[in-house]
Design a protein around this nucleic acid. Structure first.
Lengths: 347, 347
DNA sequence: GGACGTGGGAGACCAATGACCAACAGATCA
DNA sequence: TGATCTGTTGGTCATTGGTCTCCCACGTCC
């Protein structure tokens, strides 16, 4: 139990040696030649007094704080940020680093974002993780470049910062794939209306997978609405009113899928007997709690956080070069999470 | 934009003064008598060089880091932690403090919890916020006492640490109140089976409010299950199968309410026409997205985080005495969030 | 009696803060 | 009228808790 009032000096006095020796012993400095007896004296004195190193002083001298700054958007709005934080925290702690977290609003001005990074820089973090709430392009704060940095769930507009993002297209392919595997041939897509990478990439994955399966991907029904429950409901009502009603629905996210559930219920369609549904995001609160459980595609937030922290630390410790990795964003897998909303199409 | 390589010394040279003067000017030291001209010279030199203070060095010298440690349970599991973090971050930043966050598992060993606090102590945080995921009693790490600390959403077993918790009973009263106000007289409670303060206090609030309204609170129907969707479903099936079927249901949380929705749908009961439902927690993802929107009671996570950070800083700065406040936990209001799941009982 | 090996210490340094001191001006005093 | 006062302006230097680069003392070996 660290006693804030005892420093290396007190330990030195108690052990009857110099501070240099204490430092050498406690840090296991390789070139230091200290007798085993002296080592023991120092160690037991340190333990006895409840010595704990002052990381501030260490950092000042070594120019290494062992702290990573994490600026995250809208921490409280979705559980996504929590996953990123958790992944980053575990990866960081495994290597002796800690996280300093600053929350920023998705709608914050660029000055306020600059100030956030400034605060981190003044505290001399060794590197910065910059996380957004959903996959998109961002204009990164100018001062972000002054220290090793990694973007999480976004790519920088200039493309100059190393980034890690989800494999949107691959996720869509997995979603459509499970519907195809169940035997569906009339598959529709409830898409988002925002012009973000996820919208485009998931649509591409949707069409491509159908085409590769020998269906007409370009003609497959797609209805777009804002990506909320109500939008999903409306889009589902429209798509299910088509003459060639789809038997399988791929939804842009779990919230839209929740709307599709309601539309299906109103139309007397039972899931999955009459209609199979696949979501995206794996928001546990929704996906696991809908009835029947929603088969969906998980976004790798934990993994992105861990990857980002791990590679940031590698760069800080000179093991890798972030500039090289900045050329192309790293793409992480979006695994399918099978629950109970997919079955064979009705005969 | 902070330039890591320029310190107070470089500024001093550029301005043609001593480091002391630079320090005095930049910190607006009251007793320092420096001519306006010199001040200008220093300030413009600092700006020019992109000087930013080294908070590490400041902290070492002043014995104040301006950092608050936050150890939070299960950051990624619920959105609750995010709210606490956000509240604490905003309150802290408003007063010039930043947050160092460490995640801990709800099931972590006490050694691992001690180690978490140790890490914070070695970094010389000025104070510690210890947040749990749900309202309960905790055995706090022993070393927590060595620095000002506040418990968020829990109380310590010895009662020795200042704590802030939600007004569970008041929330239950508000929930039952809105059902009474709508005209219901047969009101049931779907309770949790865990033996935690929330379970007991909400039940007490439920019964007391009914009794105070002239009904028989002690005889009111209560069904307990684990506080998940499935548990809510089962408890609702049971309570709705009673001969004197309730027309209003108060649910331990929004997940159980979600189960009640399904039970109602299966029984052909329309919400709110045939059955009114009130939840607890205000998990937006669920409450706002169910159909109809769920009227519920919000837990003040943001407010608890902000209260904790604010009072912790007051204590650090000597404005208040935490020991005095440790006598009784501070109780924060749980406001009712009205949506569309409550109406008058069927005739 | 130099070379070498062993065990350990001195002191500069990291980037600030802050108590106290110094230099110089004009003012006051005997 | 020279000496002391006093207010203004700003500098000196120790200090914070470590780390790290020399450097020294003492044996011993050939």
């Amino acid at each position: 139990m660290t006693n804030r009032s005892v420093g290396i000096k007190e330990v030195a006095v108690a052990a009857g040696v110099s501070v240099t020796t204490v430092s050498h012993v406690l840090n296991d400095v390789k070139y230091a030649r200290i007798s085993p007896e002296t080592r023991d004296k120092v160690k037991s004195a340190a333990e006895h007094l409840g010595y704990g190193p002052n990381r501030l002083a260490q950092a000042l001298r070594t120019q290494r704080t062992g702290m990573l700054g994490l600026v995250s958007e809208d921490i409280a709005t979705t559980p996504h940020a929590g996953r990123i934080i958790l992944g980053a925290d575990e990866a960081a702690r495994a290597r002796g680093y800690n996280l300093m977290i600053i929350n920023t609003s998705g709608s914050a001005s660029s000055e306020s974002r600059d100030a956030d990074v400034e605060a981190l820089l003044e505290r001399r973090v060794d590197g910065i993780l910059y996380a957004t709430m959903y996959h998109r392009q961002v204009q990164v704060p100018v001062n972000l470049g002054s220290v090793p940095s990694v973007l999480v769930d976004s790519v920088s507009i200039g493309g100059s910062i190393t980034a890690v993002v989800p494999d949107e297209e691959g996720g869509a392919r997995a979603a459509v794939g499970i519907l195809l595997a169940a035997g569906h041939t009339r598959i529709g897509f409830l898409n988002n209306t925002d012009d973000v990478p996820a919208t485009r990439d998931r649509l591409r994955g949707f069409r491509a997978t159908l085409t590769e399966a020998g269906l007409d991907g370009d003609a497959a029904p797609v209805e777009s609405e804002i990506s909320e429950v109500q939008g999903g409901y409306e889009a589902a009502r429209r798509i299910l009113a088509r003459p060639d009603r789809p038997t399988g629905l791929f939804c842009y996210n779990d919230r839209m899928a929740m709307g599709a559930y309601r539309a299906a219920a109103e139309l007397g369609l039972s899931i999955p007997a009459d209609l199979s549904v696949v979501g995206f995001d794996d928001q546990e609160l929704i996906a696991a709690n809908l009835y029947p459980g929603l088969t969906t595609v998980a976004l790798p937030h934990y993994e992105m956080g861990a990857w980002a922290a791990g590679n940031l630390i590698d760069a800080i410790e000179g093991k890798t070069d972030l500039a090289l990795m900045a050329l192309h964003p790293t793409i992480l897998d979006c695994p399918l999470v099978a629950r109970d909303s997919v079955a064979a199409p009705p005969p």
